[in-house]
């Protein structure tokens, strides 16, 4: 009867590799993923630090003060202000509600809510470094244009429905 001899001096890691090829793939994948995350980490931390700075320095009162009363102009301003604002999405609803109470048009408030989440000036450098100029330019330009168009369409449709 033949029996296979196991070399007890083979390190445990090597034995595990031989036994489970999935282990090697997982380990390599985790290493690659960690490498990618470590590469983007400085940029990610910068974005977070910048978000903290904006959240503190740009107050809801400052946002309210820039609206002028003209629906078209205010919609553009709303899109722009939403793009530079940062924070939890619910904050845009709260600020939007306050803006409506102050007499700002629903067009502007809708544009503000949309661009608050879809546009982000502070994250552009990270997006640019990972996706390139063309993608970043295209995505942000379309988001800006569509925030304007959707706000007009939403208010018009809601007006017709009510």
């Amino acid at each position: 009867m033949e029996c296979e001899l196991i070399d007890v001096h083979v390190p445990f890691e090597t034995l595990r590799h031989k036994m489970n090829p999935l282990y090697i793939r997982l380990k390599t994948a985790a290493k690659n993923t960690l490498g990618t995350l470590m590469m983007v980490m400085p940029m990610l931390l910068s974005v977070i630090a910048l978000a903290g700075l904006f959240e503190t320095l740009v107050t809801p009162e400052m946002i309210q003060s820039v609206f002028k009363g003209s629906p078209v102009e205010d919609t553009l301003i709303g899109t722009g202000i939403g793009a530079i604002s940062v924070g939890q999405p619910f904050l845009s609803y709260v600020i939007g509600g306050e803006l409506l109470d102050e007499g700002v048009s629903l067009y502007a408030v809708t544009a503000f809510i949309l661009s608050f989440v879809t546009l982000g000036v502070i994250q552009v450098p990270l997006e640019w470094s990972l996706f390139g100029t063309r993608f970043t330019l295209l995505r942000n330009s379309l988001s800006f244009i569509f925030a304007f168009l959707i706000s007009i369409a939403t208010v018009t449709i809601v007006g017709l429905l009510s």
Binding site: I48, A49, A51, G52, L53, E55, T56, L57
Partner: peptide, 8 residues
């Protein structure tokens, strides 16, 4: 701002 960043 630093506190807000840590929260995020």
């Amino acid at each position: 701002a630093l506190l807000a960043a840590f929260k995020i």
